[in-house]
Every structure is written in structure tokens, then in C-alpha cells.
Design a protein around this nucleic acid. Sequence first.
DNA 1: CTGTTCGGATAATGAACACTATCGAAATAA
DNA 2: TTATTTCGATAGTGTTCATTATCCGAACAG
Lengths: 209, 209
Amino acid sequence: MDAPVTRLTREQRRAQTRERLLSAARGVFARGGFHGASVEEIASEAGYSTGALYSNFDSKEDLFLALMEREIELHASEIVAAVRDEASVSERAQGGARQWMALIEREPEALLLFMEFWAYGVRDPDIRPKVAASFAQARGVLTGLIADGVRDFDLELALPAEQLAIAIDALADGIARQKLADPDAVPDELMGRVLSMLFAAATRPATNA
Amino acid sequence: MDAPVTRLTREQRRAQTRERLLSAARGVFARGGFHGASVEEIASEAGYSTGALYSNFDSKEDLFLALMEREIELHASEIVAAVRDEASVSERAQGGARQWMALIEREPEALLLFMEFWAYGVRDPDIRPKVAASFAQARGVLTGLIADGVRDFDLELALPAEQLAIAIDALADGIARQKLADPDAVPDELMGRVLSMLFAAATRPATNA
DNA sequence: CTGTTCGGATAATGAACACTATCGAAATAA
DNA sequence: TTATTTCGATAGTGTTCATTATCCGAACAG
């Protein structure tokens, strides 16, 4: 039908190989963690040899970091999209929370990968800044959303948006962790409810002095 | 002065050895994670041989699980103590939060260990129940504290205490994770503030119908 | 068409490591 | 005292694994 399998320029083939390796790495790292994953397993799951892997990445660590970069980029936009267009603070909170819980269920590997990234980064001074940066990015996104809400609904915050973002990020993270350890222990609507309550307590109508 | 080094009964010596091995394991597992730690390193850091280690524990995993059991038991009571005697809801929240932030600073290894335990358990069906149980234990403690508060200050909850406990646990966890990745990004008072706000939004004076 | 470059395969290499078999010495029991 | 149990040491064993040296064939440049 299509698939002129061999009619690819060098560049294209290389990109394809890289992509397939990353994609396999995602599964293997998620399944076994960084130390538990073997490059051999990754390469063969991608349909290549370890030689191919080392031709595309400097080391196991390099591959892992490249994967994390792709992964973080990928999910950053997803939550934003789910929040932007809702009509009220509480609806935005519910929307964001729902999206988050769905993400946990649909792609638990993403969570596992990020935890692995965290564990790796906390221990390695060279990596820690990268982990810190990705937290900062997440907080930045949340801070932006909060600022939007404050503007759109004419509110005042009892707490800097930055700090509220920290708390929300923490909440999302912690709920995900509990849910992955024991899915039945965490009701799906909890996140939305708590988020709404938090906003209720942290905001009030702006006093237009 | 004291230390009749060799005047120990077998049982005592064995207990001492076990204890020292666990103590060394704590450091090594925290430093490198489960896979990154070697039994050789643990044994030698404790001042023993690997033979001694295998005479006291069935396997690396067995040692790790024994360590986690001790560790969880140890910290469970600490938070409770910091909360019991405060005079108001908000003071209890602040007290608990302060204790938590202090714990993060004082013993980050405890956090790292628990994360490792989580990562290990989420992947292994035989271990997951143990991780779930320790989460349940933490939630149980928190639920009890919330119930105490509700009783002592005659309140009503907008949310089951169980679920509020999930949220608080999540918050504590997530804040700790961010703080370990980037200490400067998380102000120390944040946890207390958010907790107070959460309680403010989740409780109201009981209507004694 | 020819020579060169480059992506990827094959097959080693060397180290690390979980676990074990065996032994000595100290502690208990007789 | 002597006999026996038991803790812990010594010194492997077999395996796994990240990384590399080498080579082949296809794509590109001339």
C-alpha cells in the first residue's frame, strides 16, 4: 500500500531509529526503573542492536535524559488545554483535576518515569538542576493558569500564585502516588473537590479600592 | 570505661549485628537506591562481611523490607506527637506542618527511602500490598487526628475525614518532593498556610440540630 | 560508476555484583 | 573439661550488563 520501506534518506532513517529507541526505552524504563532496565532489552524491544543504540546515544544515562526531555515536553501542554476554556473557577479546577486523574489511569508509565527521573536527579548533583527545572516548568504552567483565573474572574489571592502552584503540584503528585500504590484507596473526584476547596479558601472577590 | 565488648550473650550480639547492618543499609539504600546499593557496600560500611549479612537476612530484598518496616514504624509516631496538644485547629495544622518540614530537612534519607519503597512496590505485585498498607497506616493516623480536631472543636466536615487525610498526605508528600529537588523553591511556611486554608474550607461549626 | 561516509550489526571485554560453600572460633551445653 | 552449636569471615561462582572494537552494506558525493 504505502511503506516504500527502503526509500528513506539517511537523516530520516536515523530519526526513525532514534524515535523507536526512545519509544522502547519509555516502556522498559517505566517497567524496571533506570537501574532495572538494560540497554540490551531496550534495543531489542525496539528491533535494533545495542550497537544502534550506542550509535544514537552516548550512554544509558544520555538516553534516559533524552527520553525525559521528550516526555516532559509532551505532557506539559496537555493539562493546559483542559483548563483554558472552562467557564468558572470551580469548573476549571474540576476540568484540570479530571484531566489529571485520567492521565494517571491512561498513562501510569509517565508517572513512573517522572518518579525515576526525580530519584535519579535528587542523588546526582549534575542532574538535579534538570529535575528542578522541570518542576519549575510545571509550576510556571500552573502559575499562569492561576493568573488567568484571577484576571478572568476578577479575584484576589490570599497567597502568591507561585505558592499556590506549588501546593497544587504537590497535591496532584501525591494523589497520583497513592493511586498508583492502591487504586481503590483514592476516589476519582477527590482531586477536583479539594482543588475547589483550596481555591475557595485562597481567593476572594477583588476589592476595587 | 564501660564497653565489656566481648561480654555479650549470643542473642545480644546477633541483635547488635542485625541492628548495625540495618543502620548501614539505611545510608547506603538512601544514597544509591535499591538497585544502586550493593550488599558488599552495606556489609562493609557496617563493619561486617557479606557472610554476616546473609546470615542475618535472606536476601537483599529481605534486608530492604526489614529496613522499611523499622523506618516506617519509627516515623509514624513522630508527627502525631507534634499535633496532639496544640490548642486550635490552625495551631495544630501549623504544628504538624512545621514538624513535617523539619523532618524533611533533618532526615531527607527517610523520604528517599520511602520513595524507593514506593517505586519498588508499585512494580512488584508481591510488594505492592505492603506499600499500600503503609499508605493506609499514614492515612489512618491523619484520619485520627482530624477526628480528634472535629471532636475537640465541635466542627462539621465538608468531606469525609478519610478523604481529607488522603489530600493532606498527598500535599505533604508532594511538597517534600519539590523541596528535595530544589530547596529554595519551597518556602517553609507554605505547608502550614495551605493546611490552614484547607481546614478553613473543609470545616464549619457544627449545627447542633 | 567509484570511492567515501555513516548507520547499524556482531561479538567481545571487563567489571560489578548477588549469592553460596566452607571453615574457624567463640559461646553454650554436657 | 569436652562436644556441639552458631555467628560471622574468606573466598569463590556464575551471571548480568554497560560499553567498545570491528566490520558490513547501503546511501551519498564526485
